[in-house]
Design a protein around this nucleic acid. Structure first.
Lengths: 238, 238
DNA sequence: CATATTCAGATTGCATACAATTTGAACAGG
DNA sequence: CCTGTTCAAATTGTATGCAATCTGAATATG
């Protein structure tokens, strides 16, 4: 529990709510894998790190629990989520339902300035792709998720946007846990293709491609039941 | 703020978490319209009602805020949400994306016992439909929502189920606020029809009908911008 | 009479204190 | 050496106290 940028937040945003800022910071740390799944997040420790009382730290942890990024066990504390393969499948099943609709919404409302921002985002994503090392890998996963979130924000439905915030964050966890090596090389080009179709106003094809894109991301995972029954079987000496 | 059943909860469930129980109780009160939109929910008052400290009451209110059933303004307090027409549209747009998928999932996994439970639920719904008076109206809205929630629980995706919990609860608020008089007479028969199609394993048609069903619910609303610019215009004496 | 100002009451934001629970290590017994 | 027990340290759950903020009514002012 070390590398937490205590974001000296923008003057107006931090004025708002400190627990929200802490949530944001922890969120980023979790989806960046600076906080590994299973890591304990004790209220006192979080409070000390951000220089607030347990009350505020606790509120932040409650929010993260609601989002599914943290699992809280009564009287035991909060831990970074360790999604099971089954949860992973549920996450992607949910995305398959929601994201085609988001693409359709985005296709209707996207502006030229939006498209410019998207292209910037995609070149940045590309840059991380070509870098090596775990830090670049994390940044790549993050940037890839951001593309989906930008689409959600353009689609103009605040509720779906919030759902996507949660789903993308949890997806990042899942990818970090279950992802195979050569990840999103194809995923990235699909982002480009989706954006092109949206720009051309071909909402139907864009939505279809998004569906395939999600399939590809999921297909790139190795969703074995982890250790599952391992203990029982591992000790069953033949 | 009177009619709150302080549910003498089931021995095992209440042991769990008191703020959760309070959340549940307030939730029910809100979607039943015993707590009208705009009602202030002060921490002290909620705490006194449930015989807990502000700390616990506050946690419950935070959860409801996350669900969108309550809006919290900094330094001012928590209020039962008063969804705008635009929010209402977003809610139904979200449901249109998610519920067809839920129907498909339910069609795959539904059992004979499930179907029996659904039929029970539907006759209860029918009973409320034939009763008169606001209490029956509330119960009808609640029961109608429960049908959708039961589908979600059968579909076997915990994430979507949680999304639906939120969407159905907020829909109840919207219907209570913007619903026209002769509400769900058609909606109810559609529930029957959807269940029949699911039972027959015709997932595609069931999903399509669900889509229409949501359209019908939304079409039955009167989503005018409420008073909106009213004040300015109302005083503009021609 | 309308508008601006002041101030007390009430309410939330936050920190802290105490009680309840869990955990794991020391220790006793087989 | 292994197992079961006891107990203290640590952590969470909850209540409460104080400071900051908002609200609205009373008052002052043009």
């Amino acid at each position: 529990m070390t590398l937490l940028e205590k974001t000296t937040a923008s003057p107006d945003t931090l004025t708002e709510d400190r627990s929200m800022a802490i949530r944001e910071s922890l969120r980023n740390a979790i989806i960046d894998r600076r906080l590994a799944p299973g890591t304990k997040l004790s209220e006192a420790e979080v409070g000390a790190l951000f220089d607030v009382s347990r009350t505020v730290a606790r509120a932040a942890l409650q929010m993260l629990t609601f989002e599914g990024l943290v699992k809280t066990e009564r009287n035991r504390g909060a831990f970074v989520s360790n999604p099971t393969p089954d949860e992973a499948r549920q996450i992607f099943a949910s995305r398959r339902l929601i994201e085609p609709g988001i693409v359709a919404g985005a296709a209707e409302r996207i502006t030229a300035e939006d498209i410019a921002r998207f292209r910037e985002q995609l070149v940045e994503e590309e840059r991380y792709m070509n870098e090596r090392g775990p830090a670049a890998r994390r940044a790549e996963i993050k940037a890839s998720g951001d593309f989906h979130l930008m689409l959600a924000s353009v689609a103009g439905n605040a509720i779906l946007q919030r759902f996507m915030d949660e789903l993308v964050a949890r997806s990042s966890l899942v990818i970090a846990l279950y992802g195979r090596s050569g990840v999103s090389s194809c995923g990235h080009s699909e982002h480009f293709a989706i954006l092109d179709l949206i720009e051309r106003g071909d909402a139907k094809r864009a939505a279809d491609l998004m569906l395939h894109h999600i399939d590809h991301i999921e297909a790139d995972l190795d969703l074995q039941p982890k250790q599952g029954v391992a203990l029982k079987d591992a000790l069953a000496i033949t």
